[in-house]
Amino acid sequence: MIELIRVSHRYLCRKVLKEVTFAAEKGQITCLIGLNGAGKSTVLKAIMGLTPIHGGTIQIDGKPIGRDTYEQVSYIPDHLAVPPSMKLSDALQFMEDFYSRWNKDRASELMRFFGLDYRERAGRLSKGTAAKFNLVLGLAQDSDYIIMDEPFAGIDLFSRESIAEVFSSELVGSRGVLLTTHEVGEIEHLIDQAVLLRDGTVARTFECEQVRSEEGKSVVDVMKEVLLA
């Protein structure tokens, strides 16, 4: 379980996160939903120690974040973050060199699944293809959790479909997934739990199926209700 307890973060004088509290369970898909600037990416960065927190605690399976976090949690940022001159084969080798939990077979399976060319250079990939390769680098780690920042933003329809397929496949398996999006409509069938973030605070946390059966509302309905109120 990735657990955030009253996590705060400020940038200069602005409070970006205000006592954010929620948990992403293993074996579940949790979606952080919010408008642009609500602090979604900051939450993910804070989990990865890529930005300091100024209050609260973040724990992964009950332990504070630290060096082990990086093998336990694979982070898929909202851009590829691979030097443009690097060949895809070299980027895979780079990951294999650094990650003891790198799964080479899974990496080749994913490369096949997305139809990616090993000889291509990272800087020459189209946006959709880069997003797929980004996913390969994250999913080929045998991590317990996967966190991904806006995996669907600015990507063509077909790429979006094949990326969405990943969530219902063995590739995710029993891992915990935490992803952010500002556009939940397309994936609302895929997620277990939604965390609505508004101006750096958690406005509501709910189980999607429960809201459908008890209130007859879609995730988008709740999102509109809470975020646009």
Binding site: I29, A164, S168, V172, L190
Partner: peptide
């Protein structure tokens, strides 16, 4: 369950349920 989740492109937990 897993096959169905993949076929319908839904969350495996939902298929299980």
């Amino acid at each position: 369950r897993r096959e169905l989740a993949a076929l319908l492109k839904i969350n495996p937990n939902t298929a299980q349920r």
